[in-house]
Design a protein around this nucleic acid. Structure first.
Lengths: 328, 328
DNA sequence: CTGAAAGCGCTTACAG
DNA sequence: CTGAAAGCGCTTACAG
């Protein structure tokens, strides 16, 4: 098949041990180093990573399990994770679960078979709660969704706080009837709902929220129906990018405008939110930071197993645009 | 460390060979199968994939090397590739090159070290032309950008044809001064330019195109300058999503509208193109199909090395929206 | 149907 | 500084 370390050794006239040492910058004579390097060139040798991993018991591999790489939030986070990983000489294995617990289980097993060094995982609520059943042989850092407190390292957004930023802003702009739309599969949606409710109460406003499937079509249908009710809200707050997309489409289809007919604010700061209508007021998550912090936590955990469980909570930034301007 | 096949064998009272056979559905007695399965359960055994790969000489791994996973085109393609791969019992290794030939070289070497079964690759022009220097030990399917004809399997868009669709449409709408904006690093940009030029000539129109760095900021600056010239074009055609974003931002910043001040059409059909202003007329690429076809080609090539080199050319679809409406 | 043995391509003590 | 040898955890002929 392809050329192995034996071929290099023969070509250089040394033992395989010496070749191995040379390649890992071990102590070898100048003369030997040169001969080995020449032999590597001449033979086109490339080390076999499967063999190296098996023998050294280090896979240098990070698992990254998210719901869907096409979600811009996960796209950005995964790019950050990959940059950090390759920078540290590790590779990453990416899996998409589509929020399906069966696939999550499948991929957790795969991670074990790959003997990953560590895992970065955005779990559904279901799997998150049962994570210990898997008794994994490697550390896990949760992202986006934290589990029951104190069990796993995690890096998450201050979801409740971010929701509050949106409500505070809307209230300051004079909006009072503020409807809430939250995803019903993740802990993220629940936390954002909690922040919404608390902030509404703080402002003396009546919460009016609903949980729906986190897909654009669901939000579009919901808003379309809502717009026909006599008691239409003045503003709506939305807990993720897909739902925000649905809201935008519903208004467009109805020929209504922001904020005149309905003020809109939500998560996340996707490319298009800047461009639609007067621009959408959104929470921007520090995606790069989330990916990078998760990797850092993982490395620190690998160094010290006895570190206390930590949760890094990052704040979102409220980007104010025309969709929440004061009504004329 | 973790439990190995030996532990399972001991637990089941059989040899490791028998455990291995059982796990690969080889011929074993009912009694043995039960005992082994029990032992697997009891020990929590998970096979070590590094060992399996080394021994079997099959890595069951597909390499996927693209410029940037955050480009929605590659996001979608990679998701299609991953679905096909996991479906076929293979995993995929994803790398981002940022169109940097040095990184391409680095990752091509990595692919060799991983002993990938095959590679799906969106190369820069530079690397594409020098691909044979690497004499890779596995088949390669190029996506998005085809190399010199006849050398490598590829699945690409009919770029020239797609450009022509946009020009035909603009010409039919009565536009005559149609400016072209094309990315200068990929063969894709060049082909789209060729299609633009040919179609312009066919309509008796004077081509007026420029190649720029494929980033939003470059397009934004270019258009901002263009808008101040006395001889401003009536329409602009743009060769990728980042450039299209730059054009949109420039118009927005200048307070100009589509198509009144400038008609706009381009690649690709990203989420936001539907939502901005009157909607952007764009070419939609069959992204799912591109990823899936690339995997199919790869598998066919693996089955039959002697297959002739093939290039699959898929057509884009022109989605007509308000940005190219006839001017009032 | 089952087991003993060889070996995939490396790394890593252990001697010298 | 260098080499011979063991062994990582599997799979796969080869016998029986």
């Amino acid at each position: 098949m392809s050329v192995s370390i034996k071929d290099v050794a023969r070509h250089a006239g040394v033992s395989v041990a010496t070749v191995s040492r040379t390649l890992s910058n071990g102590p070898v004579s100048e003369e030997t180093r040169r001969r080995v390097e020449d032999a590597v060139q001449a033979t086109g040798y490339r080390p076999n990573l499967s063999a190296r991993r098996l023998r050294s018991q280090h896979t240098q591999t990070i698992g990254l399990v998210v719901s869907d790489i096409r979600n811009p939030f996960f796209t950005a986070v995964s790019r950050a994770v990959e940059d950090a990983a390759y920078h540290a000489g590790m590779r990453v294995i990416l899996c998409n679960t589509d929020e399906n617990p069966d696939r999550e289980e499948l991929y957790l097993r795969l991670m074990q078979e790959e003997r990953v060094t560590g895992l970065i995982f955005a779990p559904t609520r279901t799997t998150c709660e049962a994570l210990d059943r898997f008794d994994l042989d490697f550390p896990v850092v949760l992202i986006d969704r934290a589990g029951p407190p104190g069990l796993h390292d995690a890096v998450v957004l201050d979801n409740a706080g971010a929701s509050a930023l949106l409500i505070d802003h809307l209230a300051a702009q004079g909006y009072r009837k503020i409807h809430g739309l939250f995803g019903n599969t993740s802990t993220t949606g629940a936390e954002r709902h909690d922040g919404y409710t608390a902030a509404m109460h703080r402002h003396g406003l009546q919460p009016d929220a609903v949980f729906i499937a986190p897909q654009a079509a669901a939000a579009e249908a919901h808003i379309a129906a809502l717009l026909t009710t006599p008691d239409r809200p003045e503003a709506v707050v939305v807990s993720n990018g897909q739902l925000l997309l649905g809201v935008t489409r519903a208004l467009r289809a109805a020929g209504l405008s922001m904020p005149g007919d309905l003020a809109v604010a939500g998560f996340d700061n996707e490319t298009w939110t800047e461009l639609v209508g007067p621009g959408l007021t959104v929470i921007e998550q520090p995606v790069q930071e989330i990916g990078a912090s998760a990797m850092t936590m993982l490395f620190e955990r690998l160094e010290r197993q006895d570190l206390p469980v930590r949760k890094i909570v990052l704040s979102g930034r409220c980007i104010i645009r025309g969709s929440t301007a004061t009504r004329g």
